[in-house]
């Protein structure tokens, strides 16, 4: 996709999470990434105040998937006025769990020598799609049958990649695995599996009409409240 992009899970561009106005001059931009099986919060800190900033630290509130910093925030030198620094904070998913609204909401506290600042961000769920998420075919069929119809959610993605191969490859780079593929009456059907860091499995059926840029996505999950967020992540991956 983007220039110089490495192959891997899709990473959205950084956006401003803490505006300087609310951070007494501290501006924080960030995004979430999954690289080599690990989750990162990629951050940029900018000092827009007139004084030097130092003594940075970060903490998360309890959240739906137990996301927590896996190491202290490494900003080792003070940040002079108008200076920026980038830092990649490794995360794990063994923190305290509390169901958030929305499910992918994360409350963050950052402190420096001036004050403590709080902000909320939402993370795309595909950062939690694990590398061993390809379900065995037999297990897929049994699970698909076993999950009741009322746990199935249906969505549409417009502006999909133009072929089932392109869709499958793009999704696989973000750990959405194609378990089987069929063509029925000219429609391409992809059966896919996703496993989240907390062990929840998602089963997906993607249906594409040749020549149509849209794709019908059906999701089956034993925890159906996650399906809308899985769909958002799939849509984000397919459109980028």
């Amino acid at each position: 996709s983007g220039t110089g992009a490495i192959i891997g899970s899709y990473v959205a561009p950084k956006s401003v999470w803490l505006h300087a106005m609310k951070g007494k001059g501290l501006e924080i931009s960030g995004t979430f990434a999954r690289r080599s099986g690990a989750v990162f919060m990629d951050l940029q800190f900018t000092n827009r105040a007139l004084q030097v900033m130092s003594d940075f630290a970060i903490q998360f509130n309890r959240n739906s998937f137990g996301l927590a910093p896996a190491a202290p925030l490494q900003i080792l030198t003070p940040l002079a006025p108008n200076q920026s620094t980038e830092v990649s904070l490794p995360l794990n998913t063994v923190g305290s769990v509390m169901k958030m609204e929305p499910l992918n909401n994360l409350q963050v506290a950052v402190k420096n020598n001036i004050d403590v600042f709080y902000f909320s961000v939402v993370y795309p769920l595909h950062i939690l799609f694990v590398e061993d998420g390809k379900m065995e075919r037999q297990m897929f069929l049994a699970t698909w049958k076993d999950i009741p119809n009322e746990n199935e959610a249906q969505f549409q993605v417009r502006d999909c990649p133009p072929s089932p191969d392109a869709v499958s490859n793009k999704l696989q780079a973000s750990n959405v695995f194609t378990v089987a593929r069929r063509t029925v009456e000219g429609q391409d059907m992809l059966y896919q599996s996703i496993k989240l860091t907390n062990g929840i499995w998602l089963l997906a059926e993607l249906r594409m009409q040749p020549g149509s840029p849209s794709c019908a996505v059906s999701l089956k999950c034993r925890a159906p409240e996650v399906s809308p967020f899985i769909f958002q992540a799939i849509e984000m991956v397919l459109k980028n």
Binding site: R137, Q138, L141, W144, R182, V184, E185, Y191, R207
Partner: peptide
């Protein structure tokens, strides 16, 4: 390749979804 019946099972699933 061993025919384990799963190919056929996926075909039936896809057909049932297209023509419920």
């Amino acid at each position: 390749e061993l025919d384990d019946g799963l190919d056929e099972a996926f075909s039936r699933l896809a057909e049932s979804r297209t023509n419920p």
